[in-house]
Amino acid sequence: MAGKAIVITSGKGGVGKTTTTANLGTALAMLDRRVCLIDADIGLRNLDVVMGLENRIVYDIVDVVEGNCRLEQALIRDKRQNNLFLLPAAQTRDKTAVTPYQMQELVSKLKEEMDYVLVDSPAGIEQGFKNAISGADQAIIVTTPEVSAVRDADRIIGLLETEGFKEPEVIINRIRQDMVQKGDMMDIDDMIEILAIKLLGVVPEDENIVISTNRGEPIVLKPEKSRAGQAFNNIARRIDGEELPLMSLEKDTLLKKIKRIVGLS
């Protein structure tokens, strides 16, 4: 049976699409799924760096569509999970180097081999976005709890619905429980009310993300060390069909911390 292609998109830039793609891909691979990540941000290649695979790139997505190499030759196998692959973006070309039709062909070819194909979309609503969504069966919108990011997310949701995406889902990233408690940040309920779409998960603001990005190691590899890693793991399990309640964002009690470290929660 063919796999499922999911595009990770946002509208506003810098809200965490690439971080989300890297972590969900790694987490799904850790669940023994075969996964391919596509970096559709042509000209601003990033996913390879977040994955720590930048030194292994030989060919890229533009080489594949232009016939300079076969698809398999451009796929980079992950260092840690041997069932995880990356199709890197080209760094020296622009978004017009790939057409939506070519993208669709590529994705459907990959779906034959993979359980999940995750497409990291560039910011914006232009050609790069149109490429990224072609061939995807499902869309995930990443947003932060800020006015401008939510506004752009709403715009994207509208566009996705016009393009026939049935049930786009949202991930709220970088939520800060201390600010929510003070009434200085919109909470989960506010966001669901405003956007009126299904919430796939919530990821807290977490400095460990910066550290893991520095190292080129997705944070889900060490979920016991961070709330964000745990959140991404939960989201991956939801994508994979598990019914999991939303993670509580309260501060960890010592007991909870211990439980998490020994794998009880």
Partner: peptide, 22 residues
Amino acid sequence: DKDVSSKNIAKERLQFILIQDR
């Protein structure tokens, strides 16, 4: 809370912006 907290201001502004966008 309704008047002072900045999240409520954010929420109200957003709701108004989204009407126009939508």
